[in-house]
Nucleic acid binder design. Structure first.
Length: 466
RNA sequence: GGCCCGUUCGUCUAUCGGUUAGGACACCAGGUUUUCAACCUGGUAAGAGGGGUUCGACUCCCCUACGGGCUGCCA
């Protein structure tokens, strides 16, 4: 088989939807897993609604998710002359015709049909079979001369064979009266020109595939392999919308989800390979196939997303995590790391990454290394600093000077302190935690002492007892 | 209205005519414990409803219900 070529074709009319992100992911996975190409085309033919900001959001979203595309992103609008050329070629081939009906006439036609009892009517242009000699000197739209009998069959990898009766499909407009192409024409021409072999997209396009098939046939072009994947719904099963919270990929980055976890979760949403749940992108590439895609819509489950992300943070490589955390801070509008904080975080990462599901949690747990003296403790943490605890801290702090700074030595020392006071380690760990971090949720006190070092530990303890 | 697609634990899903219907997240109970998280053990929990086909249906067919999509000179 020739090289596989897939594409993602988002329209820049807002933010980048997670559904679009997952579609992009499937296209990317399929192309990369098969040594193919993955292209990006911006469907910006709707000049009214397309914005450069939205295009930027798409590029950023794709980049964040690690979905690299081959070549430059293509602008669909830039191809408008080519689209018009094809429309005119269809005219020449007799597979399309000039339609002089105005939008008002079409509306009137429908109204009449409805008044006559039909609840809905497919518009039948009177110009379809008109003698060119009768053509008025007016603007016209170019309509597809769709077959009126027979059926069009979509052989879809995900949906199976789907049959549409041709009399259900109208003569869609391919070129508007102002000379601009419609979506139905533009996608087909672009996909053909870009050599797209597999069209993997949302199943909201399933019906469109039938119409588009007619364009391919009208031009004598090879029809791509179709794969219409189900849409993503909100937790309540309704179509995902803004009221469900995060719908834009950028939101996910800003909420601290690591991109690897996001990829893993999104891959599993609507796709399965036996019992595989947690996997790296490399493993996903080895397992991925179009056959594993299901046919029913999937709901977003933020708990599972978090759980998946927790695994990826725990298993992530430090350097990569650090880099991504900085990206998260920027996306969330939080202050960037100072050099000392970056260094501290790098040292602390080993003990915070396995206790965080998101970077939000990770930053919280790493507070002890991001803050500096004097440590301001929160209310809950302060409760552990009662007079008795303070007394014990007061006694042990100077002795810390003579403890060698290893986990074993510290453990032996603190265990001994507990023994002499007849208390459990928890009783001592709590106030230590308050002094060291000022919070109740932190890494182990040993890890914190090791990370910040002997001098800083003693200084922080002295602050609270002094 | 017409056409098309879908429906397995709360959620994501496995099963591709014969299983005690499996896994994961969530949840509950217990364990571990230095807070948080993690981890270990166990548990609750599913084939929308109704007809067929078949020796045997979650699986194949039909109907109904529910959900979704398309039905634009939007993409």
């Amino acid at each position: 088989m020739a090289q596989i070529v897939t594409r993602i074709a988002p329209s820049p009319t807002g933010y980048m939807h997670v559904g679009t992100a997952r579609t992009a992911l499937f296209n990317w996975l399929f192309a990369r897993a098969n040594g193919g190409k993955f292209l990006l085309r911006i469907e910006d033919t709707d000049r009214e609604r397309s914005t450069p900001e939205a295009t930027e959001a798409i590029l950023q979203g794709m980049t964040w998710l690690g979905l690299d595309w081959d070549g430059e992103a293509v602008s669909q609008f830039a191809q408008k002359d080519r689209h018009a050329e094809v429309a005119h070629e269809m005219l020449a081939r007799g597979t399309a015709y000039k339609c002089f009906s105005t939008q008002e006439e079409i509306a009137t036609y429908r109204a009449e049909q409805e008044a006559a009892g039909a609840s809905y009517a497919v518009f039948q242009s009177p110009w379809r079979d008109a003698d060119p000699a009768t053509h008025p000197d007016q603007p016209f739209a170019i309509r597809m001369m769709a077959p009126r009998t027979g059926e069009t069959v979509i052989d879809d990898v995900v949906q199976g064979k789907v049959t549409f009766r041709n009399d259900q499909l109208d003569d869609m407009i391919v070129l508007r009266s102002d000379g601009t192409p419609t979506y139905m024409l533009a996608v087909v021409v672009d996909d053909h020109d870009m050599g797209v072999t597999h069209v993997i997209r949302g199943d909201d396009h399933l019906s469109n595939a039938a119409r588009q098939t007619m364009v391919y046939e009208a031009m004598g072009w090879d029809i791509p392999v179709w794969a219409h994947i189900p849409l993503i719904h909100g937790p309540d099963g309704k179509k995902l919308s803004k009221r469900h919270g995060a719908t834009a990929v950028g939101d996910y980055q800003a909420q601290g989800y690591p991109s690897a976890g996001m990829r893993n979760y999104l891959t599993r949403l609507g796709w399965a390979h036996a019992d595989a749940e947690l996997f790296t992108t490399q493993q996903a590439l080895e397992m991925f196939s179009l056959e594993g895609i299901g046919r029913s819509p999937a709901r977003l489950d933020f708990k599972k997303l978090e759980s998946t992300c927790g695994w990826h943070i725990a298993h992530g490589e430090d350097a990569a995590l650090l880099h991504e955390i900085e990206g998260y801070l920027a996306a969330a509008g939080l202050p960037a790391l100072r050099d000392d904080q970056r260094a501290g975080l790098a040292k602390a990462l080993y003990c915070v990454k396995e206790r965080a599901k998101t970077f939000v949690e990770l930053i919280e747990k790493a507070h002890f290394v991001l803050t500096s003296r004097p440590i301001v403790a929160d209310e809950a943490a302060l409760k552990h600093l009662d007079p008795v605890s303070r007394g014990i801290l007061n006694e042990l702090t100077p002795r810390l000077q003579n403890v060698s700074w290893t986990k074993d030595a510290l453990e032996a020392f603190l265990t001994e302190v507990c023994a002499t006071h007849g208390i459990g380690f928890g009783k001592l760990a709590a106030p230590l935690r308050t002094a060291l971090a000022g919070k109740t949720a932190t890494p182990s006190v040993y890890d914190m002492m090791l990370v910040i070092g002997q001098d800083e530990t003693i200084a922080r303890l002295s602050d609270v007892v002094g």
